[in-house]
């Protein structure tokens, strides 16, 4: 399976079902990597609503990679524009979701989605792009490191109850 028939474009309403499946798989993977990311009971409903809101939000971009030959959504990336307020550059693009179907991995599709997202983010005025993912995700570690990403913030946690 080559990348020849893959097209990257903005997500549309018609893609909702297919993209929701991919995002749900991403959240389930996070749960497998760390029980602190245990998914909610109505995950599918929550994901669908999240994507519907994303489509209506001017500061959010969702791109899909479609395998036109098989008419299948092979991957998705979502980012939001955030104003950092106190720091320059003010506008950052935060990658909130990136997922490629397992049988389409190792074909640089993830890289292609990130590059297209960066192009779009740049056009929208973002000066910096960041990504946040669970600390135990070594797949993401090596992927983003290879693309030149470097640590920026630290997020620590502990349970609230004693």
């Amino acid at each position: 399976m080559s990348l020849e028939s893959i097209v990257v474009r903005r997500m549309s309403e018609g893609d909702l079902e297919a993209v929701a499946e991919l995002i749900a798989r991403l959240k389930s993977l996070n749960e497998e990597l760390d029980p602190n990311f245990k998914v909610v009971e109505d995950l599918d409903k929550v994901v669908r609503e999240y994507l519907e809101r994303s489509l209506k939000n001017d500061r959010v971009v969702v791109l899909v990679a479609e395998d036109e030959g098989n008419r299948l959504i092979a991957g998705v990336i979502r980012f939001e524009l955030v104003d950092r307020l106190f720091y320059e550059p003010r506008l950052k693009a935060v990658i909130t979701d990136l997922y490629v179907r397992p049988q389409y991995r190792r074909k640089r599709l993830g890289r292609l989605l990130v590059e297209k997202a960066l192009d779009e983010a740049r056009r929208m005025g973002a000066g910096i792009v960041t990504v946040v993912y669970p600390a135990g995700n070594r797949i993401a570690d090596s992927f983003y490191t290879k693309m030149g990403f470097v640590e920026l913030n630290k997020e620590l946690y502990r349970p609230c109850k004693e």
């Binding site: 497998e32 397992p102 389409y104």
Partner: peptide
Amino acid sequence: AFNEEFDPSWA
């Protein structure tokens, strides 16, 4: 489903 996340050959 978990294993297939590690390598496309486990798809």
